[in-house]
Amino acid sequence: MNSLTILAFAAVAFIGIATPGPTVLLALTNGSRHGISRSVYGMLGAVLSDFVLIGAVALGLGALLAASEFWFSVVKWVGVGYLAFLGIMLLRSKGSLGQSLNATDNGTGSRLSLFLKSFLVAVTNPKGYLFFSAFLPQFVVPSAPQVEQYAVLAVVFASIDFLIMLGYAVLGSQAVRLLKQNGALWLDRICGGALLTLAGSLAFYRRAAS
């Protein structure tokens, strides 16, 4: 694997990550509700999920989900349920600016809670496993050691993912300040609706026929 291959991978990964998905939406919401520094814990959860997904694909889990309708459905419906749960929680939130920025150690704003939300959203989405299964091998040299190559790709992907989520968290934090009192409420509603839409999209997602 040479530097040009890594740069090509980084460019494609940037485009894919920058398109708003569940973890990016959570970064936006966390930035608006809890501030940039606390939203970092959610980003770390998403970064860990990147390593888990890529490691799982390297071990063949992506191929298993592509081949097994049963296990694909299990992972898919767990992901649908969790995305829907988070979307409903955001739609039901009161979203006031003061409550959002002061919600630090309660059940919804604790460091562990933010970390687990982003981590679980990613690892329960079968589309991630299938995406990496199709995407990563294009940048891996079959004749070279596999572990080192997958490790490099995982570090590159996770680094880009973190930087993009940080940008969305900053955007969410600034948007709340510009929108004043109702900013967090509107962002919660928008992101909650988007998460429910993603849950619906995942519910209708079908495994490609082998």
Score class of each variant (00 low, 15 high):
residue 2 N to S: 08
residue 7 L to A: 12
residue 8 A to K: 14
residue 10 A to V: 10
residue 13 A to T: 13
residue 16 G to W: 04
residue 17 I to S: 05
residue 20 P to K: 06
residue 23 T to A: 15
residue 24 V to G: 05
residue 25 L to Y: 14
residue 25 L to C: 10
residue 26 L to C: 13
residue 27 A to E: 05
residue 31 G to P: 11
residue 33 R to D: 10
residue 35 G to C: 07
residue 37 S to P: 03
residue 39 S to E: 07
residue 40 V to Y: 15
residue 43 M to I: 10
residue 44 L to M: 13
residue 46 A to H: 13
residue 54 I to R: 01
residue 62 G to M: 03
residue 65 L to A: 01
residue 67 A to Q: 15
residue 73 S to M: 09
residue 81 G to V: 12
residue 88 I to G: 01
residue 91 L to S: 05
residue 91 L to I: 07
residue 95 G to P: 06
residue 98 G to P: 06
residue 101 L to K: 09
residue 101 L to I: 15
residue 101 L to G: 03
residue 106 N to V: 04
residue 110 S to R: 08
residue 110 S to Q: 15
residue 116 L to F: 04
residue 122 A to P: 00
residue 125 N to K: 03
residue 127 K to E: 14
residue 129 Y to F: 13
residue 131 F to N: 06
residue 138 Q to D: 15
residue 138 Q to A: 15
residue 139 F to C: 04
residue 145 P to T: 04
residue 146 Q to C: 04
residue 146 Q to N: 05
residue 147 V to I: 08
residue 150 Y to K: 01
residue 153 L to K: 01
residue 155 V to K: 02
residue 156 V to W: 07
residue 160 I to T: 10
residue 165 M to P: 06
residue 166 L to A: 13
residue 168 Y to D: 02
residue 169 A to I: 04
residue 170 V to A: 11
residue 178 L to G: 11
residue 181 Q to C: 05
residue 184 A to Q: 11
residue 190 I to H: 01
residue 192 G to I: 08
residue 194 A to D: 03
residue 202 L to Y: 08
residue 203 A to I: 12
residue 204 F to C: 09
residue 206 R to M: 13
residue 207 R to W: 06
residue 210 S to W: 05
